[in-house]
């Protein structure tokens, strides 16, 4: 899996992840506190400038935003049609700004920096006995390790369908994929416990 992180040395890259996340949270509160269109417009332009700080290639920069931008535009048009132009403008400017800022944080924060921050944030939850902070990193690592495996299995099941002259359908694809994948859970769990990765149970 390719991550959405972009190598670089911009101001945003050098900022600690916590500061970026707090900044994003503050921005979202500010954005939803105001309804003034000029203010939101300025905010949107400033967000676009922040998004361009890490210097992505223009094409790549646009491609990343396209799916979210598309839903914003569609819902914006819907609002324009069924509500007022002012409501639609407020909505589009708010969400576009937020999307740009969020995408900037994603492009400048690596997976490991994020995981460190999340593990630290989960510490209070560990103290009240809700989760073990270290389990979060372990689970994320497991998923990243097994996605290619599950994908290869799905491809094999699809090939098996073709070999029998069957058309692969959602149901006949999903059931063997789920049973095969979950069937290896015991082995993986035993391997994790044998290495003492989760400490004493």
């Amino acid at each position: 899996m390719r991550t959405l992180y972009v190598e670089g040395r911009s101001v945003l890259h050098r900022m600690p992840p916590r500061a970026k996340l707090l900044g994003l949270a503050t921005a979202s509160i500010v954005l939803f506190a105001t309804r003034s269109i000029p203010l939101l417009g300025m905010f949107c332009v400033a967000s676009a400038a922040v998004y361009l700080l890490p210097r992505l290639a223009p094409r790549e920069a646009f491609e990343r935003l396209r799916p979210v931008l598309l839903t914003i535009v569609v819902v914006g048009l819907f609002t324009l049609l069924f509500d007022s132009a002012i409501e639609a403008a407020v909505f589009v400017l708010r969400l576009t700004s937020l999307m740009l800022l969020a995408a900037a944080v994603t492009a400048t924060t690596g997976i490991s920096a994020f995981m460190e921050e999340i593990t630290r944030l989960a510490m209070p939850l560990e103290r009240i006995g809700l989760v073990r902070a270290a389990d979060i990193g372990l689970a994320v690592g497991l998923v990243i390790r097994f996605v290619p495996e599950v994908l290869a299995r799905t491809q094999a099941i699809r090939d098996a369908h073709h070999a029998r002259g069957l058309k692969p359908r959602m149901l006949t694809l999903a059931v063997p994929m789920i049973i095969l994948t979950l069937g290896s859970a015991d082995e993986i769990a035993a391997a994790i416990d044998a290495r003492g990765l989760r400490g004493q149970n």
Binding site: F146, V150, I178
Partner: peptide, 17 residues
């Protein structure tokens, strides 16, 4: 249990695929 953690993570991989 470790097994439950692994089952959840494997299912996440399934959802991703």
């Amino acid at each position: 249990l470790t097994r439950d953690l692994v089952l959840a993570a494997l299912f996440t991989a399934i959802i991703v695929v």
